Amino acid sequence: MTYIRIGGSSFSDEDIFAFVIIVLVIGIASWIGYFILKSKDNSKPLEKSKVKILEKPVQKGNIEWYVVEFENGERKKLRSFHADTIFIAVGDEGILEYRGITIQSFQPLTAKK
């Protein structure tokens, strides 16, 4: 049996193997959870509305959240899994396509001259 000493503690091969297995299980569960979360809204209908982006409160990795205001005054918190391809800034106005709470696309309105 091999022991590794780190800062006064010793770990056996079995301890290291158990730690690696636990990290792998957590990683796989996180990956599965991410894809379940991402595909959860796919069964909902695609909606299209004119909106104004009011706030960008939270960023977690590649997921960005936005508070949007619709033409009728309703506000919703929506997420985007495409932070690297859908560029949205606070104050933008445009046409937003979304399913459930997931943004599918955003086309900013062109400025009138």
Rank of each mutant, 00 (worst) to 15 (best):
Y34T: 03
F35S: 08
I88Y: 00
I4V: 08
V90M: 02
E97R: 07
A18Q: 06
S10Q: 08
N62Y: 12
I32L: 14
K112V: 14
F81C: 01
P57G: 03
V25W: 04
E93L: 04
G33M: 05
Q59K: 13
I22D: 13
F70C: 03
E64L: 12
K40R: 15
L78R: 05
G27I: 00
N42I: 11
E55C: 06
I103D: 01
G91H: 05
S30N: 13
G91P: 02
L46E: 09
L46Y: 03
E14S: 11
K77L: 14
L109K: 01
V90Q: 10
I32M: 14
I26C: 10
A83D: 12
I28R: 03
G61L: 08
R79I: 08
I53M: 04
S39V: 09
R75G: 04
F19Q: 13
D15L: 04
V67N: 15
P108Q: 11
F70Y: 13
M1P: 12
T85Y: 00
K44A: 09
S10V: 05
G33E: 03
I95Y: 05
I53V: 15
I6E: 04
I101W: 11
S12K: 04
I101T: 12
K56M: 08
I101A: 12
E47K: 10
G73S: 07
V67R: 15
E14A: 11
S9E: 14
G73W: 02
K77E: 13
S10H: 05
D13R: 10
R99V: 04
Y3V: 09
F81N: 03
R5M: 08
D41E: 10
